[in-house]
Design a binder for these strands. Sequence first.
DNA 1: TATCTTCAGCTGTAT
DNA 2: ACAGCTGAAGATAAA
Length: 709
Amino acid sequence: MEHHFGQDAAPASGSFDKTRVLNVKPLRTLVPVFPSPSNPASSSAPQGGAPFVCVSPSGPFPSGVAPFYPFFISPESQRLSEQNAQTPTGQRVPATPAAPISTAVPINSFRTPTGATNGDVGTSRRSTRSRGQVAQEDGYSNAVIEEVEADATTVTKRSKRKLQNKIKGPQSVGSGDVDPDAVAADILKSLNPLVFNVLNQPEGSRDSVAYTLMIYEVMRRKLGQIEDSNRAANAVAKRPDLRAGAIMMNKGIRTNSKKHIGLVSGVEIGDIFFFRFELCLVGLHSPSMAGIDYIGTKTSQEEEPLAVSIVSSGGYEDDVEDGDLLIYSGQGGVNRDKGASDQKLERGNLALDNSAHRGNEVRVIRGLKDLYHPTGKVYVYDGLYKIQDSWVDKSKSGFNVFKYKLGRLPGQPPAYMIWKSIQQWTEKSAPRAGVILPDLTSGAEKVPVCLVNDVDAEKGPAYFTYLPNLKNLRPTAPLESSIGCSCVGGCQPNNSNCPCVQKNGGYLPYSSASLIADLKSVIYECGPSCQCPPNCRNRVSQSGLKFRLEVYKTKNKGWALRSWDAIRAGSFICEYAGEVIDSARVEEELGGDNLDDYIFDSTRIYQQLEVFPDDTEAPKIPSPLYISAINEGNVARFMNHSCSPNVLWRPVIHENKNFSDLHIAFYAIRHIPPMMELTFDYGTVLPLKAGHRKKKCLCESVKCRGYFC
DNA sequence: TATCTTCAGCTGTAT
DNA sequence: ACAGCTGAAGATAAA
């Protein structure tokens, strides 16, 4: 980090002169490259004909364009959903028989018939094609699919036995008791078959890692949600993380399953995880609990065991951590029943010893406390280390403990160091370089939002007024008439009488960790007419910013948004604040000089981020919503476009006496490490409206569509 | 095939 | 913070 802003450029807090940045033009990823419609075909494109929109999920893909998300929807389906969304009455328009059938297979085709009936598009295929037929016709055959098809409960004998024991157990009662394996099978069937093509590659890739983690996330959250709603008040919590992980292992939904020393393809240094099973499933660290992973233990060969990876979670005493150095304690010497004892030079300890002698690389995953879930941990993949030294130490209780000193190999991108830096900024033991404003919001948010420029001399983005929420909010007629809840202590997941639970399909939309449980096309939160308190689990998007965000200057994309805190997939990040305007105003603004950069337009068409299987249609909005953040807005106005975004939006409806307060909320698609830019897909206007310009996309993703508009 | 080992992750209870 | 509880994979021992 350069320090050229250190002393002179950063003004004392509170003395910032806003007039100095008054006339700075916003510079974002939005660079108009073509005047409006340069291509007549695209302006009237009857279907997804524009080159930059969507490709069929079944391919072929132009070079550089491939689906990144495990769930897809055809362009026609998107268009239909989009029409549905714009129906003023809020009634869904069924797909007419005359509607063109896509060559793409709608994701709904793979839905089990008993499933919830959202997404009416593509019905004709869904009901008539079995999975087996699809596999034949479209060439989607592969081992995983066949296994899923053959038997939903195909598991190893061992796991089957265990599952049966669980089913017989005393506590699996509940009105809607669901078999986890059946749920898992449903989820797997709802996946885009292309996912399996990626997963079946012997070598892991960025995509296979991303898919694996997303499927795990979906499975874990769904099982947790079901368990949550069925569990009696004082029952012991099951472990959806373990259950989901076991199912994934049994079905072979994993990548890099062959252990090896060194980097893991598709996993990048700096990647973060929130469960040990995630490390396991992507091939970073196989043991589900143990801290040392090693290979070469086959007794037939005389090969000595060698260490592959370690997880440093601070579980053993005397761990000293310092940036690129790590003192790691060996395993053993702790027994639940027998108490403490000397560690032995066997298993992982022996493997580490051998690796030390050979000078082998060892992957290091650092487990840190998760600020937002004090009982949980964040795992940071910190790349390759070498063991520099080892010795035997005495534990506090006087027993022998093996110690290993590991040093990080040079030349690797920073990972854990970023966490250390942020910690120093937090503790004020080191200043954040290039700070222009310590709090852009002037206290309007609960947490400060830093304004930073450590790349050039620009003093800030164009002037605007910070507004934390929506202005001119007009209640609109809801999709369904409804009433507020009367859950005095907050809505409970197992209260099927709560109208807010009912509106969300019988489940609370958020997990106990406030993560979005599965991505519905609309999220119904409690609102002004509900009697539940502000901290109700169903008001997640109403409590303002939670993460410490930072607006910062990029090298080539203008200003952007990122977070000091790690963000778990499914976390609420912020809403799109600004002034609600009507379509006439939108046209007006479009006639202006590129001011549409800060208009949120719900009627745009989005390349579907079908991350969650329950979501097979576009976001469903009772009426079109336009929000202008040109003059007033919040952090959301700084989020840039990307064709491989890590954030998505969903409409959130707050219950308000038979009317709806409509908001746009942003959620993390994946786990987002600190200081990584937050981006979402701006979507596409079809047909192109007069005055609209195509913009060249600078997202630099390998999946980049090239343009957006 | 059964047993053993293991730096998990909850949830509830006492500070 | 802390304790108590249940876990699943993979190595290893036993059969």
